[in-house]
Design a protein around this nucleic acid. Structure first.
Lengths: 225, 225
DNA sequence: GCGGCGCGTCAAGAACACGTCAAGATTCGC
DNA sequence: GCGAATCTTGACGTGTTCTTGACGCGCCGC
């Protein structure tokens, strides 16, 4: 779950924000001043921070700098004062966004989504490790049991990708052919036979007795780890 | 130089922005409507886009979506209308920031800096040292094994930058062409062949047996240290 | 036991992708 | 406006990959 650190000394606003954010299924952590905010962030690093200016103890810029010293988590600054110099200072200190009070809740939520979207570009980290090889789909890298790289041709990658994405699930001939070669090749099952054989020769310890690329006669193939 | 695409049908504002941005040493490209903006971006991909809502031809959301279809370049939206629904729509479409007119120039500049800062997270891993060269992405400096400087052309830099940012990851032909030349050049794989060859001639000890710029036949290229 | 069917294997030709080179076109600085 | 650097474009040789057809084996129903 996404954790949001909320820093504000206005109890009412804090309450309103907490309710709204919790309803959107964010995990909310609150602090009423800068010092406890920094301590809290260090202990349980948030995925995003919302910081009100005009805290009782620390300057907003100080808090932002304190966070930016060790984390790149998105920071959204709230403020009642609409001074342009303050905006520039806090943005240049490392804040990602600056919202002037009063603001609409929907707008703030949209800005939160935008900031979080930027922060997590690649969530699909798919690495499959077996006794005989390591498969990194994102980096398109395959290494054998002794650490040597294994080279696959484009169609072999494509084929393996489809099978691995449907791990442990049976993928029919038609679906496989459609996804790799296109809808016009739905019936060319010999393509599958040839390329599956090549794949097995590269990743199976005993290509004749496949452990990972299983044939389901008459139906399709299945990848299993 | 950092290139900013400026889309607005208000000639006065366009002029004022262009002057201010140029003074800050940004390269400015302008368009007066959404269609030419998208075409322009496709031909010369910008590092940041500033888009005014209320363009004569296309909806702001459409323009943002058109860009987001192929690039993650930061997008800042300007608008006179202060409707919250519009803000939410365009932010959720993929815009990074939303500034309401009238705005202070200093604030906009600060928001531009913030957006650009986020877009280049590779500043912390900017120096790559290998047995054959030292590469400093931030300073755009490349030195050979004996300490002599190596000169790269703009496209060579761009190409190397994309590959190094995705270090150890395989970057497909399409992605590479899109990021360096723009989506209109998706199929010009010979560009890659030529420029990769030039790059290798400059940084590989044995250009015919590349150690760092690995080609994955039929798929793309990979930088590895 | 027999024949059909699906599967794995193999090999050869066609098609494709890559690296390389060189000549025009374009851009940029002076 | 000129010259140099850079980028685009086309062509060619080489190596790899894909397609295509043929063959044998094992399983299953008959």
């Amino acid at each position: 779950m996404t954790r949001i650190l909320l820093v504000d000394d206005d109890t009412h606003l804090l309450r309103a924000l907490r309710i709204n954010l919790t309803a959107r299924r964010y995990e909310v952590v609150t602090a009423a001043d800068g010092t406890t905010a920094l301590a809290l962030a260090a202990r349980t690093p948030p995925d995003l921070a919302i910081i009100d200016l005009g805290l009782p103890d620390l300057d907003g810029v100080t808090v932002v700098e304190g966070l930016r010293g060790w984390t790149q988590t998105p920071i959204i600054v709230l403020s009642a004062r609409d001074s342009e110099a303050a905006k520039v200072a806090v943005l240049d200190a490392g804040a990602d966004d600056y919202v002037t009070k009063p603001f609409g809740m929907d707008e703030l939520l949209a800005r939160i989504r935008a900031a979080l979207r930027r922060a997590t570009p690649g969530t699909d980290i798919a690495v499959i490790t077996t006794a005989d090889f390591v498969l990194d789909l994102a980096a398109k890298r395959l290494t054998g049991s002794s650490g040597e790289p294994v080279r696959l041709t484009p169609t072999e990658w494509h084929l393996l990708e489809v099978l691995v994405r449907n791990r442990d699930k049976l993928v029919g001939h038609r679906q496989l052919l459609q996804e790799v070669w296109g809808p016009a090749y739905e019936t060319e099952t010999n393509y599958l036979r040839v390329h599956l054989a090549n794949l097995r020769r590269k990743i199976e310890p005993q290509p004749a007795r496949p452990r990972y690329l299983i044939t389901e006669p008459g139906i399709g193939y299945r990848f299993t780890a």
